[in-house]
């Protein structure tokens, strides 16, 4: 009874029309967004999958039943059993343990790309859209040039130049995936640069950087977050593709794409070697897509 009244008073504090402090106003906004997000059940499934990925990655050494590099050549290519839930690979390593440790690599790739590509795109797109003129022309032609390259081929070229490895794969993916974000941010900027609230900011004496950072970027971030989340599935697949081609993570790292590549010689007889990491990629990509769809409903400014 007391806990119920307590929780309802919390809710009243969050949803009040007259917040008393900056923090309360901000939390109230977040709460309203969370309520809208919670109504979308598929999005909640996506969120759970992504959270599960984070938890598995964080607790990998505790969760994995075996060491991911421990070879047992006597037990190679074993089908799923009680000892090895998902079977063993060509070196007799436990596939489940490798998948669990591979979650760390996947999460690292996702996080690094999500922290670089949209940020580069946001800066270039908003500056180009707000400044206009030759700045816009120059930045957008550079963007066009990057867009004209096939993504995976350009990534391959970068990796070939920098040498194979997971860091270089991340750099290659980031460098090839920022142009769509720049385009999106520029389009959003163009729709709001002549709004009265931007004029009002200029009339208060706000400098260009202050307007771009404080007024334009917050309105572009929502659609970029949605786009980034939806693109994360593609990033995982590109990273897996680079791994599959032998240009991403190098053995013995348990990267999911590389694991599929290793299992492809015996894909017909020992299907689980390639299918299990494929299933993991599929589930995580699906999770990010569902999460992105839900976020779009909450964050997209066209919705309100």
């Amino acid at each position: 009874m007391t806990s119920q009244t307590q929780s309802s008073s919390w809710r009243a504090w969050l949803t009040t029309d007259t917040p008393q402090s900056r923090a309360q106003a901000r939390l109230g906004r977040a709460w309203v967004g969370w309520c809208a997000f919670r109504r979308n059940q598929l999005a909640m499934v996506g969120l759970l999958i992504v959270l599960a990925l984070v938890v598995v990655a964080a607790l990998a050494p505790l969760l994995a039943p075996h060491h991911p590099y421990d070879q047992d050549l006597a037990n190679r290519l074993q089908p799923p059993t009680a000892g090895h839930w998902l079977g063993t690979d060509g070196f007799g390593r436990d596939i489940l343990s490798r998948l669990i440790h591979g979650a760390r690599l996947t999460l690292m790739i996702v996080a690094l790309v999500a922290l670089t590509a949209p940020v580069i795109g946001l800066v270039i797109g908003t500056v180009a859209g707000y400044r206009g003129g030759w700045v816009d022309a120059a930045l957008m032609r550079v963007t066009d040039i990057f867009l004209a390259f096939p993504k995976l081929i350009l990534a391959l070229a970068f990796v070939a130049a920098l040498g194979p490895g997971i860091e270089n794969a991340v750099i290659a993916i980031a460098i090839t995936s920022w142009p769509p974000y720049a385009r999106l941010a520029r389009a959003e900027t163009l729709t709001i640069r002549h709004a009265d609230f931007i004029s009002a900011a200029r009339l208060q004496g706000a400098s260009g950087p202050r307007i771009v950072l404080g007024h334009i970027m917050p309105l572009c971030v929502a659609s970029l977050v949605v786009r980034t989340t939806l693109d994360m599935a593609g990033v995982i697949l590109t990273a897996a593709g680079l791994g599959f081609l032998g240009l991403g993570a190098q053995p013995p790292l348990p990267e999911w794409g590389a694991m599929i590549a290793a299992g492809r010689q015996n894909v017909l007889e020992q299907w689980w070697v390639a299918a299990m990491p494929g299933l993991a990629i599929f589930v995580v990509s699906l999770g990010f897509n569902l999460l992105g769809d839900g976020l779009r409903d909450v964050l997209d400014p066209k919705g309100d």
Binding site: D196, F197, S199, A200, H215, P218, P301
Partner: peptide, 12 residues
């Protein structure tokens, strides 16, 4: 400005 719906930043 004329339009109070357009002259205030919607996220501020």
């Amino acid at each position: 400005f004329q339009d109070p719906y357009g002259s205030l930043h919607p996220r501020h």
